[in-house]
Amino acid sequence: MKLDPSFIWEAFVELLPVIPTSLLITAVSVILGFIIGTAVAFIRIYRVPFLHPVASAYVTFIRGTPMLTHLLIIYFGLPMLIDGLSAQFGWGFRSASIPYINFAFLAFSLTAGGYMSEVVRSGLLTVNRGQIEAAYSVGMTTPQAIRRIVFPQAFAASIPNLTNAVIGMLHASTLAFTVSVVELFAKAQIVASTNWKFFEAYLAAAVIFWGLTVLIERVAVVLEKRMTMYNRGGVA
């Protein structure tokens, strides 16, 4: 087998149009996962009655099972639930009308939420308890203290780990091909299948993933510097 450099470039060009799909899957899962993870982290830190054991079980399940399992459970289980409820209550809605990518959004968001909850929780625990007490002494309420003092510092401390989570979700977006979503990896397979030059197609995909990863790292460095400056009272 000989390497075909010209086909690497050809595959690279054909992969470019599906980059937005991979980025969309990553962005949606990271944003929703961060919201879920933040809520779960606060529930666990403040040991909210009834919700604390549920949140702990959720994190344990997500971290203890493969991401592909979450995707397949959602992909096969959710339609059964929707169609069952629809038949029971006489709804006209059917799961067949749901775009495949929505299953990926939901599954990856739940997965990201489980991992990000630990990232956010570790960041929140780095903030000295005395700062919250100082906020109370000047008349702040708990929500105000969390929003204005605790969360900015916790977010800055969590940026390196959050960056790793974002990169991990970008790479994990390749699993979406198992539910018929054409992202970078699936497109690479389609391109390669035309003449069986899989190595060249996968190499082109690897270059694109590497470039996106470097871009995310650069953005994270800039964001970390600005957050650190803001927390120290500088001009952001």
Results as ranks from 00 to 15, higher is better:
K2C: 00
K2P: 06
D4K: 06
D4G: 08
I8P: 03
L16I: 14
I19M: 13
P20A: 04
T21W: 03
I25Q: 00
S29A: 14
V30S: 02
I31A: 14
L32R: 07
I35W: 12
I36P: 09
G37P: 05
A39R: 10
Y46V: 05
V48H: 11
P49Y: 13
L51E: 05
T60Q: 13
G64T: 03
T65I: 09
T65W: 09
L72M: 15
I74S: 05
I74R: 05
Y75Q: 00
P79K: 07
L81V: 15
L81I: 15
D83T: 09
S86M: 02
Q88T: 13
W91S: 11
R94D: 08
R94L: 06
S95W: 12
A96K: 14
P99S: 11
Y100F: 10
Y100M: 14
A104C: 13
A104Y: 00
T111F: 15
Q131K: 04
I132R: 14
E133L: 01
E133I: 02
A134H: 08
Y136H: 04
V138A: 06
M140S: 02
T142K: 14
P143I: 07
A145E: 11
I146E: 08
I149A: 09
P152A: 09
A156C: 10
A156I: 07
S158T: 09
I159F: 03
P160F: 06
T163P: 04
N164H: 01
V166P: 01
M169N: 00
L170A: 00
A186W: 11
K187S: 12
A188N: 09
Q189W: 09
V191N: 04
T194K: 15
F199Q: 09
E200C: 05
A201I: 06
A204Q: 08
V207G: 08
I208V: 02
I208C: 08
F209H: 09
G211S: 04
L212Q: 11
L212Y: 06
I216E: 08
R218V: 12
R226E: 08
R232K: 15
A236H: 12
